[in-house]
């Protein structure tokens, strides 16, 4: 018996139909044949792998995936996000995460301080406050648990909040936080970027304005290469 028979008869050659980083729209065929595996935002039907979202094609080994260019923020465990307190419950706070689903911040995950039974929670965090929190759990029904007991996680006071496209967050942060560190250094502001696309900037009024302008500029030019260098020049020497 030949090797071909052992493989199950005549098998069609697998072929990749799209180039790396090519833009595809939903329903486009990415590859033919069983040698490729469908990754994120793709699906297999019979021999073909199809795109399930608008985005850029990435191939790593046998896996084909699509990095979407738009769309909602998907809450992930471990993400640090900025949220707004929308309600106070018996045991904690309800936080708007900027998605279709709100998160719950339990009292015991919010502070190390002892809280007496029946204490007024709005004295600690009030409705309308913004908080920097971490996602600790997401269920299949998109119930979100939040925590605020790690360094850097806190209730926000002062400064300003701005909203950007959550898909552009990695560019605002940069490689090894190079971009956000550059912004901090050049504007003298404290900057926190939430994975859900909310950014908190606090500093002098001039510094805040400068940082806000710079962040908007990065969002617009997120596709450019060498962005950190050009932002360095944009923000000037000081």
């Amino acid at each position: 018996m030949s090797a071909r028979h052992k493989l199950g008869g005549y098998r069609k050659m697998s072929e990749l139909l799209k180039k790396e980083r090519e833009i595809v729209i939903p329903g486009e065929i990415l590859a033919q044949g069983m040698d490729f595996l469908p990754g994120e935002n793709t699906y297999r039907e019979n021999d073909n792998i199809y795109a399930k979202a608008l985005g850029l094609v990435y191939v790593s080994g046998r896996v084909i995936k699509i990095t979407s260019l738009s769309g909602p923020y998907v809450p992930m465990v471990g993400d640090r996000i900025i949220g707004k307190v929308i309600d106070i419950t018996m045991t904690g706070w309800r936080i708007d995460t900027g998605t279709a689903y709100s998160g719950l911040l339990n009292v015991k995950d919010a502070t190390t301080r002892f809280i007496k039974k029946g204490e007024d929670l709005s004295k600690i965090i009030a409705i309308g406050d913004y908080v920097i929190v971490m996602i600790t759990q997401v269920t299949s029904q998109r119930l979100i648990d939040l925590a605020m007991r790690e360094p850097g996680l806190k209730k926000i006071t002062g400064g300003r909040i701005m909203k950007i496209n959550s898909h552009k967050v990695p560019r605002i942060i940069g490689k090894q936080a190079s971009m956000v560190n550059l912004l901090r250094e050049k504007t003298g502001c404290e900057i926190t970027v939430g994975q859900n696309g909310l950014v908190w900037v606090r500093g002098t009024p001039e510094g805040e304005l400068k940082a806000e302008g710079a962040i908007k500029r990065i969002e617009e030019r997120s596709h450019e290469s060498g962005l950190t260098e050009s932002m360095d020049a944009f923000l000037g020497g000081k």
């Binding site: 935002n41 199809y50 399930k52 769309g71």
Partner: peptide, 11 residues
């Protein structure tokens, strides 16, 4: 809908 990043199997 495609522009909004909604998962779609086809156009």
């Amino acid at each position: 809908l495609a522009d909004a990043g909604i998962p779609m199997k086809d156009m």
